[in-house]
Simulated scan of single mutants.
Amino acid sequence: MREIGLIRWFGGYNLRTKKMNDFGFIRDNKGQDIYFNKGHVQCKLKELTPGIGITFERGVNFKNDREQAIRIKLLKDENDREIFYDFFNSKIFLELNLNDRSEILINIDENDVINTWSNYEEDLKIIFLYRLCADNKEFKLIEKINEENEFIRAMLLLYWGKINNCNNEIIIKKAFKLFKGFIEIKNRDLKIASLNNKYNKEKNKSFIIEFVKMCTQEAKESEELRKLLDMLRAQLLK
């Protein structure tokens, strides 16, 4: 039976043996740690960083007759929808990294995302909206969510325009005002996380600009769009 968990740590230099460790520990859904060896990993070892979501089975280490994790697979490689719900309803959900949490939200029902939206931090909302846009997935969020954060509201508005094929100058102008209000009037320091794997083509904060371009690719190039992109480049790529 497959279980869910996250990587607590893996590898690293061992001062006692003067070698690199070939083992690590997983935290299961009950908060307990379970040992695993690299021989039971079904992904690239460099991907086993703390906070990465995984699924595994339990087995026995025949050298010491102790329990260990086997057949370890990354969450992002799963296609069983029930697995995503197991993570969503688990104790370890908040310990997962942002990319894995956004992966979970992408793979569950829209209403479940909406009902828990107010619990999510700014960075998770930003990455999740980027993922929706990049994956061309339609969630009718803006019509059902009361979002106070102006930066997120701007992203929701642009995403709404994309999925409804109506990203015109009025929407772009409204998004500009919301982004500008957040960045300049509130003078907030944006803490936008980098994205991993296929979403990390540009470093740091530049994927926000890619989000805007994806949302407005069907719109005619206009002065309003140029103003929006120039403002974001100036503020996010310092």
Rank of each mutant, 00 (worst) to 15 (best):
residue 108 I to K: 04
residue 169 E to V: 07
residue 149 N to A: 00
residue 89 N to Y: 15
residue 120 Y to V: 00
residue 187 N to C: 08
residue 23 F to S: 02
residue 85 Y to N: 13
residue 190 L to G: 05
residue 143 E to V: 00
residue 94 L to M: 12
residue 191 K to E: 09
residue 45 L to C: 02
residue 182 F to D: 08
residue 73 K to V: 14
residue 190 L to I: 14
residue 115 N to V: 01
residue 55 T to K: 07
residue 16 R to V: 08
residue 194 S to T: 08
residue 233 R to N: 13
residue 142 I to G: 01
residue 63 K to F: 15
residue 169 E to H: 06
residue 30 K to Y: 10
residue 48 L to N: 06
residue 7 I to C: 04
residue 102 S to Q: 06
residue 166 C to L: 11
residue 187 N to T: 07
residue 200 N to K: 13
residue 48 L to M: 15
residue 207 F to Q: 03
residue 191 K to V: 08
residue 234 A to Q: 15
residue 154 A to D: 02
residue 138 E to G: 00
residue 144 K to R: 11
residue 226 R to K: 15
residue 192 I to G: 08
residue 169 E to S: 13
residue 97 N to V: 03
residue 53 G to F: 06
residue 131 R to L: 09
residue 10 F to I: 07
residue 127 I to C: 05
residue 152 I to N: 02
residue 22 D to A: 06
residue 236 L to F: 12
residue 43 C to Y: 06
residue 4 I to F: 08
residue 33 D to M: 15
residue 139 F to L: 01
residue 44 K to H: 12
residue 123 D to S: 12
residue 53 G to M: 08
residue 165 N to I: 00
residue 78 E to L: 12
residue 53 G to S: 09
residue 33 D to Q: 14
residue 41 V to D: 04
residue 61 N to E: 09
residue 238 K to I: 12
residue 195 L to C: 13
residue 235 Q to I: 03
residue 180 K to F: 13
residue 203 K to F: 10
residue 183 I to K: 09
residue 28 D to C: 04
residue 186 K to A: 10
residue 107 N to Y: 02
residue 224 E to H: 07
residue 4 I to A: 04
residue 107 N to C: 00
residue 40 H to L: 08
residue 15 L to Q: 07
residue 216 T to C: 15
residue 178 L to D: 02
residue 54 I to T: 07
residue 159 Y to T: 00
residue 74 L to I: 10
residue 142 I to L: 05
residue 197 N to R: 11
residue 49 T to L: 14
residue 115 N to W: 01
residue 100 D to W: 06
residue 46 K to Y: 14
residue 165 N to P: 02
residue 122 E to F: 11
residue 156 L to C: 05
residue 103 E to S: 00
residue 74 L to W: 09
residue 149 N to E: 02
residue 167 N to F: 05
residue 230 D to R: 10
residue 95 E to V: 01
residue 127 I to G: 04
residue 210 E to G: 06
residue 174 K to V: 03
residue 126 I to G: 04
residue 135 D to E: 09
residue 126 I to Y: 05
residue 3 E to W: 11
residue 40 H to E: 14
residue 27 R to I: 12
residue 200 N to F: 04
residue 17 T to M: 13
residue 157 L to S: 08
residue 193 A to S: 15
residue 57 E to K: 15
residue 204 N to Y: 14
residue 149 N to L: 02
residue 150 E to T: 00
residue 38 K to E: 14
residue 123 D to G: 11
residue 182 F to H: 14
residue 3 E to D: 11
residue 177 K to M: 11
residue 203 K to A: 08
residue 185 I to E: 15
residue 132 L to E: 03
residue 78 E to Y: 08
residue 68 Q to C: 13
residue 103 E to H: 00
residue 53 G to P: 08
residue 7 I to D: 03
residue 204 N to S: 12
